[in-house]
Nucleic acid binder design. Structure first.
Lengths: 334, 334
DNA sequence: CTGAAAGCGCTTACAG
DNA sequence: CTGAAAGCGCTTACAG
């Protein structure tokens, strides 16, 4: 498989490589119109497509950014990807999407791969263990923006939900419907650290603000496999909760599975709100009230932040945090 | 942001670029152990990471394949991506995922981008309009494998579901439960061409094989927005269907929305089977019987086919078709 | 208005 | 066992 090179075009058009290159880069100022046309025709005839590797090597920019998501199977991730992609495309950047699959080893591989491929910057859902790697890259002046999480030790710009607010909105929704015994369940593993901590904090604060009693038994962070059993324990308490906030989409699914299996009635037996909107929220019986993240906006902001870093001298950047505003979608589970 | 180059390492270790390069490429045969150690230490000290652009330019291989999905929001797509990725990682290849977003213009851009970035091959869910581009690439000897669709004019290897079988399994499931008035609805736009045609063909054949009457009114391919109204018309026929096969996950969602809105009871009023397993199938009330594609296997086979093409002289390849076996997941909607 | 030359950061065949 | 040299396919500052 032989590829056409710039020199083939040059020979075919009877000009030098330089001139073809000028043409490719749109520098027509000093080019005779007939030269221009000849080159255009040669490119057409030979079906020439420039080698981006060579160009990038020379120009020291790939016009490409890397995106590492923690888990591509989450709707949140795919929506964020879509949004980043839309914005980058407008700005003339490509994206390379990688799926770390909740696995720090994979994450590290991808970080290195993307860096080796000379991406101009990185947007990532940082998993956990690779904080030093990120800091090292940042110290080299490599543009990075985090999504969904803050890493306090790292001081790197982040875009994430106003998680405390999200929990607060949910609690207040329950309170407005006169629920008093309110529980929250989050994952400890699949849910990345920042959202979990902040959602629990927000929950606690909101409970206090509403002068409700904060019952430790109503407040659980457990591994994915234990969600159902944990919920079961709650429901078997002397005073079981009458409302439960699912810390993310995954928790919600587990709760609904348990609820279904045990023929518990929503909202009569238990009211439910989930953080993260899910495609089946409308389809469930009854439709589930959810707190939606502004994924489209968050993706766009992350892309903007990163492209700004790339364009400016990234050494001089001020890192900052953007908080997406949670929005409640009222349906019939509460 | 200055990056460390191979020459920096060479100087630091007191050897030549060549020797560092030999080290990087694992050719230790003729290398003194102390040279090896010195280089290792220099790489460590300088935090050197090779520039993959330069290497690929020289080696004429990027060890990277491109994956273009028609729509990344489909579960099918993300599962296929995961599977391709797993397999490629094992074989030492990276993947670059792109989302054509059902848009031929985007698709074309991505094809060109990936080709420009010198990916070693391409796995794609071909949308429609870019068949000539694909053929052109293939004629140049560029390895391509299609997913989910066959393009008869192109003779390019494809991996896709045994769609006729999938429809047949569904019809037989209905028949085994004594349903006679069986309908099928597919999308005409979002559903890519091959699956739709083949699923409808399989449906027709199965109806005939089971000596049922093939009612034209029970057989509809419509745009996404018209699914609900089309289904409504069906249900208002003198003899409405008693069972309906949803041509894909998207159709299923639309049908369920309508069914829910109109308080139709599954399976008493209408039995439902969906092609494509969906995350909420278990959660719906009643749980929905679905026909699952072996996504993991299909992704793996596609990756294998492509890597074979890449390794062999791709000019000599025999193109072939792999059909994934559909599997019924019996739940309670039929 | 166009071309010759140098160089981006690697790898590799070959010389010693 | 190691290094000098050429070259991958481009771009760019400069000469003319």
């Amino acid at each position: 498989m032989k590829k056409v090179r710039i020199s083939d075009v040059a020979r075919h058009a009877g000009v030098s490589n330089s001139t073809v290159s000028q043409y490719l880069n749109g520098r027509y100022e000093y080019m005779r119109i007939e030269t221009k046309n000849r080159i255009a025709k040669s490119i057409e005839d030979l079906e020439y497509q420039p080698n981006a590797l060579a160009r990038s090597l020379r120009q020291k920019t790939t016009k490409t950014i890397g995106v590492i998501v923690a888990n591509i199977l989450h709707t949140f991730s795919t929506q964020i990807i879509r949004s980043i992609e839309d914005h980058c495309q407008k700005m003339g950047y490509h994206i390379i999407v990688c799926n770390a699959d909740e696995n720090p080893v994979k994450e590290e591989k991808y970080i290195n791969m993307l860096y080796a491929k000379q991406v101009d910057g990185l947007i990532t859902f940082p998993i956990n263990k690779n904080i030093d790697l990120y800091k090292e890259l940042q110290n080299k002046g490599f543009p990075i923006v985090f999504l969904d999480r803050i890493i306090p030790e790292a001081n790197i710009s982040s875009v994430l939900l106003d998680n405390e607010k999200a929990a607060k909105i949910a609690v207040e929704e329950f309170v407005s419907k006169s629920y008093k015994n309110i529980a929250i369940i989050t994952t400890s593993f699949l849910d990345s650290v920042t959202p979990r901590i902040e959602r629990i904090n927000g929950f606690k604060k909101a409970i206090k603000e509403n002068n409700l009693y904060l019952d430790k038994n109503y407040l659980k962070s457990v591994d994915a496999e234990e969600i159902q059993s944990t919920f079961e324990e709650m429901m078997n308490l002397k005073h079981p909760p009458k409302a439960v906030l699912a810390g993310n989409d995954f928790v919600l699914i587990e709760l609904l599975k348990y609820i279904k299996k045990n023929k518990i009635i929503i909202p009569k037996d238990i009211a439910v709100i989930g953080i993260d909107d899910v495609p089946f929220a409308d389809l469930y019986n009854p439709p589930i009230t959810t707190i939606k993240q502004p994924t489209f906006k968050m993706g766009k902001i992350a892309a903007e932040m990163l492209l700004n870093k790339i364009k400016k001298n990234s050494d001089l950047n001020i890192e900052n945090i953007y908080r997406g505003k949670p929005e409640i979608l009222r349906r019939f589970s509460c």
